[in-house]
């Protein structure tokens, strides 16, 4: 089975490296890193990853705005949001733009992997 590919959009090299380590041990492939929203949009169009993992708090356009732009360009896009802000209000904001998944920083690896699995299954149903 082909590995699912991931684009990480996060200004933190700490988060990006941690994500790469855990997902690549578990059958995914990180094919790109973007340090801000604009870079993320450009890299998505260039690389066409299966999944985007994106931080909310970033310099320039934040993760929510970036997600909205990407969803307009590609309504079938699969995005997992990450944030140190993970309260019920932030989750509502994530849902209000049509996304389902928000996991907290620092995350538990099993939560990250289980959420990725949900995104992949969602992909398979379409």
């Amino acid at each position: 089975m082909d590995k699912k590919t991931i684009l990480v959009v996060d200004d933190s090299p700490f988060a990006s490296k941690q994500i790469k380590d855990i997902v690549e041990e578990n059958g995914y492939e990180v094919i790109g890193y973007a340090k801000n929203g604009n870079e993320g949009i450009n890299m998505y169009e260039e690389l066409h990853p299966d999944i985007v993992i994106m931080d909310i708090i970033m310099p320039g356009i934040d993760g929510l705005e970036t997600a909205e732009i990407l969803m307009k360009k590609d309504p079938s896009i699969k995005i997992l949001m990450l944030s140190s802000l993970c309260d019920s209000g932030t989750l509502e904001e994530v849902k209000s733009i049509g996304l389902k998944y928000l996991i907290p920083k620092p995350w538990e690896d099993d939560v990250l992997l289980a959420t990725l699995e949900l995104l992949v299954k969602q992909d398979n149903r379409q």
Binding site: S83, S84, L85, K105, P106
Partner: peptide, 30 residues
Amino acid sequence: LYINEYINIACGCAISRINDMTGQLSRLTV
């Protein structure tokens, strides 16, 4: 970028908890 992330996570955890306790929203800057 590393120390930014440390502060972002610590303060984000605190603000998330305050948001949930008060039912009101606060947001963090970079």
